Simulated assay, not measured.
Amino acid sequence: MTKFLETERLLLRRLELGDANRVEELASDYELAKTTLNVPHPYPAGSAADFIRSMWTAEGKGLVAFAVVEKESESLIGIINIKQTLSFKRGELGYWIGLPFWGKGYGTEAARAMVEFGFKKLGLNKVFAGAFADNPGSWRIMEKVGMKYEGTWRQHAMRDGRFVDLAYYGLLREEFDKEE
């Protein structure tokens, strides 16, 4: 597996157990958790190490996950991943960036690197992502990296006891190749 990806301001590298406290610190923020399907709130104390180990285990099953690290501070600011469906050569992009780093373009920068990685290194035909329909910050990232809106899956998931709509975006290899 690739050890890391580098962008202008970011290093995307494999998650390490030493990241556990920082993951827990950032993921504990309700404003972040409420924008995701899988980050629990309150975040269980001491559970980030188990989460990181689960990411390692999933690597053999098509998951590629990276810590998003700000180069300047050398601090973890989020997590990004692609969950591959190998039989269909597609990958679902997932990400979160800690609240103190919102609005600075880090999510877009990391997503752009992962989309390129998906096509060039993983050989995917499609990279797609979903976000809560009422979370424009997330789906704007998808648009900025070239993904096209494909539709909204109504009441497709549940968060905090309520059904939520998910907006899906995707990018095909042929579209990615044209943009290069």
Rank of each mutant, 00 (worst) to 15 (best):
T2Q: 10
F4W: 07
T7R: 00
E8N: 13
E8V: 09
R9D: 11
L12N: 04
R14S: 08
R14H: 12
R14G: 03
G18W: 00
A20C: 04
N21Y: 07
V23G: 00
E24Y: 01
A27M: 08
A27D: 05
Y30N: 05
Y30T: 04
Y30K: 12
E31T: 12
L32W: 02
A33G: 08
K34E: 13
K34C: 14
T35H: 04
T36Q: 03
T36F: 03
T36L: 08
T36M: 05
L37I: 13
N38G: 15
H41C: 08
H41D: 09
P42A: 13
A45M: 10
A45H: 11
G46L: 02
S47K: 09
A48N: 04
A49M: 03
A49Q: 08
D50P: 03
D50A: 12
I52W: 02
S54F: 01
S54N: 07
S54C: 04
S54R: 00
M55V: 15
W56L: 08
W56E: 07
T57C: 02
A58G: 05
A58R: 06
E59I: 01
L63G: 02
V64Y: 02
V64S: 09
A67K: 06
A67Q: 06
V68M: 04
E72V: 10
S73V: 07
E74R: 04
S75G: 01
L76C: 11
G78E: 02
I79F: 00
I80P: 02
S87W: 04
K89P: 00
K89E: 14
E92F: 03
L93K: 01
W96E: 05
W96M: 08
I97F: 00
I97T: 06
G98N: 02
L99W: 02
P100I: 14
P100T: 13
F101V: 12
W102M: 07
W102I: 12
G103A: 09
G103C: 11
K104T: 14
G107I: 00
G107T: 06
T108G: 14
T108K: 11
A111L: 14
R112G: 10
R112V: 11
R112T: 14
A113T: 04
V115I: 15
V115W: 05
E116G: 14
F117L: 11
G118L: 02
G118C: 08
K121Y: 08
G123C: 15
K126Y: 03
V127Y: 01
F128L: 07
A129S: 15
A131Q: 02
A131P: 01
A131I: 07
F132N: 02
A133L: 11
D134Y: 05
D134S: 10
S138L: 09
W139E: 05
I141D: 04
M142C: 05
E143T: 14
E143K: 12
K144C: 09
V145F: 11
K148G: 10
Y149D: 09
T152I: 15
W153T: 12
W153E: 15
R154I: 15
Q155D: 13
H156P: 00
H156A: 15
A157R: 10
A157S: 15
A157C: 12
M158V: 15
G161W: 06
G161C: 09
R162M: 14
V164W: 02
A167T: 03
A167E: 04
Y168D: 00
L171E: 06
L172F: 15
E174P: 06
E174Y: 13
E174T: 14
F176Y: 15
F176G: 07
F176K: 03
K178N: 13
K178G: 12
K178P: 11
E180A: 05
